[in-house]
Design a protein around this nucleic acid. Structure first.
Lengths: 335, 335
DNA sequence: CATCAACATTTGATCGATCAAATCCAATCA
DNA sequence: TGATTGGATTTGATCGATCAAATGTTGATG
């Protein structure tokens, strides 16, 4: 087994010094072209790869980004986050970052984990998901000058202006719900109900607002229940009894419950279940969201943003969801 | 902002040397109790935490475990892997490991990533999922003396004995299918069909075998289709037409398709969908699987195995799945 | 031809831990 | 008393990179 190549071993081979090799990698413009080529050849020949721990010890940069895995969602809806984690992993790799996972029982535990990881492992940044009212995590990170971005808007009532200064990416659920409503109207439905959650959840309220945007004064058939298939089924029955002929739902769980009462249903998040049963649903562009998150972090960290990532310098990005229309229900098509 | 505490700063405060502080942390028995207490007090007072990069540079151990995120499953079934990732993250933390994610387009890409991560980041071990026939990854890792464990048996036809020497954890699908079949028989069904995949997939064949184990010569109603809700629905119709009154399915996707034809269905993997619609399903003990994986890695690495992890010294663990019986179908209960 | 600036390259120190070997110290024994 | 032993503690070197400052080289300029 060959010895591990180091800066020094490469330097020796190229007939230069450590630092020149280092410069070829980190500041090539400082090195004369001929030397550069000679060093590059030596790097190639030895298969040299920089050792991250050594670099980290000196620079205090680990190129690692932390992500807390949220406790598993009980239902169907958790899968967007999983898709997001996938997309994040790939996009982080494009920018040279690696994703480090950790878990915590609650927000305070997550904050304690930040503290620990920053001090012991030099994590460069964090990605937060599932932002909510009164989120202490963002405050802590801002106060400590840590780079981070959230997937999800800051949902606070705007009391503290600092909440809006951090980087975030979110999907415009209002637009999505509006598109869903319009789609059903285009199919000929006139009495379109909304099946969502009780007021108070940021995302839920947004979606309801999108439905109202389209229907205006006709937006009267409104049910608010906790998330779940059974609740969706029951509430759908009530809405249909009240005269609704089509339903916009705040989640695929609710939509799945509603789906066997009528196929004129649109769900939210385009989970695997929706695809499986042929349910139309509003898809979140998680891939794009992840790309924006990584781009924001790279900018915040002063690192180059690779061309594959979005180059908008915005600190906030609100993405447009996409309505996935499926016109052939699969599993519930009783003969 | 206080300066970062280091071994030296703690040592100074405690009136000892660096090395003694290091010993208190890594080999306390070498230090006289009084000194030990003094040092511990200094550690406490300064909030000292060891810097992983510095340690890693010297010891060549990162305490990081790599995991490749598989490309997203198209359907419902991917969620077991996600649950496994969660469980793995938590159990890894118990043993002092962190989980580092990476992605790769295929097995060869994964191997290239191993190579890279080992050399640059000193990853201590890897966890592999979705093992399959002719898996080159395990061979490579064995050849390079890298610690790893797989979630999933080596499914090779036993040509190379090395395949069986590595650490693996799996769930006994055969047992699970048998339990499902028995459950349906106990409910009074006599003609129980199996709805699975074409022969050739390790896990699928196991599950079919479990069904045969229970029914013996009565195991005749057998359909093999590719995975999917629609396929499940269609195949279920054929099986029912052929006289079946109940169905054991190889996946929740298939089971969901079958579910509206008859509620006498048992699925596999107990995905969120199954819970959502009230479908009985065979649950994989992912939590236990993850704990075993971490315990195996810790042993392989010569690290202490924390008491919360299983202490069996086995290199192979076959876990028993659990049948989750749900007797009230939710969404498909047509009035 | 000497001087100076600008560029190119090298040298020594450093990040914070561990390893290996040296030193210190108290207790034991000839 | 002095040598010996074993445990406790300290010292110096090291891992592999980067930083900061010093040195070396080149070309332009008066």
């Amino acid at each position: 087994m060959a010895e591990r190549a180091t800066l020094s071993s490469v330097a020796e081979r190229a007939g230069t010094s450590r630092q020149t090799v280092s410069n070829v990698l980190n500041a090539p413009e400082r090195v004369r072209p001929e030397t550069r080529d000679r060093v590059r050849a030596a790097i190639e020949a030895t298969g040299y790869r920089p050792h991250v721990a050594a670099r980290q010890l000196r620079t205090r940069r680990s190129m690692n980004v932390g992500l807390r895995l949220m406790p598993l969602q009980d239902g169907i809806n958790g899968s967007i986050l999983d898709a997001f984690v996938h997309a994040l992993t790939e996009n982080a790799a494009h920018a040279g970052y690696r994703l480090v996972l950790f878990s915590a029982p609650d927000d305070d535990g997550e904050i304690a984990a930040y503290d620990e990881l920053l001090e012991t492992a030099d994590l460069d940044a964090f990605v937060l998901t599932s932002t909510h009212h009164g989120d202490r995590r963002t405050r802590w990170l801002l106060d400590h000058g840590v780079a981070f971005a959230t997937f999800g808007r800051p949902w606070s009532a705007g009391t503290d202006p600092r909440d809006s200064v951090h980087h975030w990416v979110d999907v415009d659920g209002r637009l999505g719900a509006a598109a869903a409503t319009r789609h059903l109207r285009d199919l000929g439905h006139e009495r379109i109900g909304f099946l969502g959650w009780p007021a108070g959840s940021g995302a839920g309220d947004e979606r309801r607002a999108g439905w109202r945007d389209v229907l205006g004064a006709a937006a009267v058939l409104d049910e608010a229940v906790t998330d779940g298939v059974r609740q969706g089924s029951d509430a759908a029955a009530r809405l249909l009894a009240a005269g609704a002929t089509a339903l916009v739902c705040a989640s695929d769980s609710l939509a799945l419950g509603a789906f066997h009462r009528t196929t004129a249903v649109v769900g939210f998040d385009d989970t695997p279940v929706a695809a499986a049963v042929g349910l139309s649903s509003v898809a979140q562009p998680v891939e794009a969201a992840a790309a924006h998150v990584v781009a924001m972090l790279a900018r915040a960290l002063g690192d180059p943003v690779p061309p594959v990532l979005p180059s908008t310098p915005d600190r906030h990005v609100l993405l447009e969801p996409r309505l996935v229309v499926r016109d052939e229900p699969v599993s519930l098509a009783h003969p």
